[in-house]
Design a binder for these strands. Structure first.
Lengths: 273, 273
DNA sequence: CAAATAGTGTCTCTAAGACAATATCAC
DNA sequence: GTGATATTGTCTTAGAGACACTATTTG
């Protein structure tokens, strides 16, 4: 009987209705903010790229960049292509987040999405330049669990403030997933996709292997530590952080000069690990 | 321009060619083998469910169970449905492995697959009963890296022996993926899907959270340890293993009687963790 | 000098690996 | 008793967190 089923599937493949397949990409960047105090080092912010939708559904709402899978490309290639189309930049990292396929998640019809988190360096974004009037903007992202066990996601750019509320629930098979309580005017189910993406990003950051993608080839250990602190949203002790990443980096003989304080040595990522 | 693009996509969605979407499921089970020595405890084997294909392509080759996503279900539900159709059993765990979308991976056309690893208890398989003549069989799986840095996958059932060879390669974005060198007569790209699934399974097993799914509600710590050892393909020291899992389990007041040696206490999984 | 960041060393505690020792059954 | 598994305890070591201390710059 299984043979029959397979046989039929093989030869009547075009008779079956097929879903549209998209990728949604949470592109993260860490920005260096303006100094508030001339003597202090600048602050860092984790930022997420959102696109203002030009058409229905969710017209004028903000959404993750993404688009339909094209024939001849992998879903990873599709994700990179979408980010490149929006930003003119190739991301330095691409991390699989998961498949979103719940019926009804997209009012346009049967559409399943492969979600990815990606990383873009501040350096490359600055080279392109940010247009304040563009429909693509880098929102400051804040995300975490509060005392009420709910997760609060805020995305901030200029005077735009999006605030979503989510619950983390155990589904079948003891897997946890985010359920949107308030989408905070974020399009589709993207509040959940963003929450899941940042959760994956934070999980990966624990291995230190991925944080280098936020920085240029040469960097100071303090800058690297700030990346880690900004992603994880927690302070770290510099002595411990340096010990932890020591096996991942190698020294260069260059220094960052011109600051008010002791020059910092520049490091490179070690490849053979 | 982006607005226009989105707009067009919204309203001409049916004009775009869409891929077929399938799930492939690597269903794992741990079997208790016949005692070779009357005084020794029985051996355990990790087994994987394969289906002999009844039609082209890959007719008469062995493949992972799987099938096309149907409207109104999630990809997870599709995976569970496919396993249930093949085995008449609902798995106790379902773990996402990734999306396989490389063009040409399926000779039938543009087909992308969501791969899952799933776990089925030996108990439930025995209740259904295994038919030796069926086109669905549980193969003993062996997988690991040899000295030549290549990965060897062998699947064994009765006098059927499938031997695949794979390389683990860094792709773009520093991700590692398996490349099939010799598919060993396994259908499609399933040798790579199986390798990736077992890699994910072993990674997950390190957290102890998932290994309970191989056993019934009540189990001995020795049985649990054997599950871990069988998945990871390495011996463990019982004292250390017991310490490690102690926070995940709680005692019952029942014992396993009737063996030749000291009765073992039965444990239950602790839920509130 | 002060004030900031850059970088090093050390103490402690815990978790994990190795392994010894004891307990309890059937025969 | 023997021979197997079941269970507990202890020694050691590696790694991570906390924190003190030194170094180097500009003004």
């Amino acid at each position: 009987m299984e043979c029959e089923k397979e046989f039929l599937l093989n030869y009547n493949i075009d008779d079956y209705e097929r879903p549209s397949v998209t990728t949604d990409v949470a592109a993260f960047m860490i920005s260096t903010e303006e100094k508030t105090n001339e003597r202090k080092a600048p602050d860092n912010k984790l930022r997420l790229l959102l696109i203002k939708r030009g058409g229905h559904p969710f017209k004028d709402k903000w959404a993750l960049p993404g688009g339909f899978l094209q024939k001849g490309e992998t879903v990873e290639e599709c994700a990179v292509r979408e980010i490149h189309e929006e930003t003119n930049v190739i991301p330095t990292a691409l991390i699989s987040v998961g498949t979103f396929s719940k019926p009804g998640r997209d009012p346009r019809g049967w559409i399943i999405s492969n979600a990815y988190a990606s990383i873009i360096t501040e350096e490359s974004v600055k080279q392109i330049g940010m247009d304040d009037a563009s429909d693509a903007q880098w929102f400051i992202i804040n995300f975490g669990k509060k005392d009420d066990d709910l997760y609060y996601l805020t995305l901030e750019y200029d005077d735009i403030l999006l605030k979503a509320v989510l619950a983390r629930e155990k589904t079948k098979f003891r897997r946890a997933e985010f359920r949107i309580i308030d989408n905070g005017d974020i399009a589709f189910d993207h509040a959940a996709v963003i929450a899941e993406s940042l959760t994956v990003l934070r999980q990966e950051a624990k291995n230190y292997d991925m944080i280098f993608n936020f920085l240029p080839e040469k960097f100071t250990l303090t800058a690297l530590q700030k990346v880690q602190e900004t992603i994880m949203d927690m302070p770290l002790l510099s002595g411990n952080f340096r010990r932890m990443v020591s096996s991942y980096v190698e020294e260069t003989d260059e220094y960052v000069k011109g600051e008010r304080y002791r020059p910092a040595k520049l490091y490179k990522r070690k490849n053979n690990i």
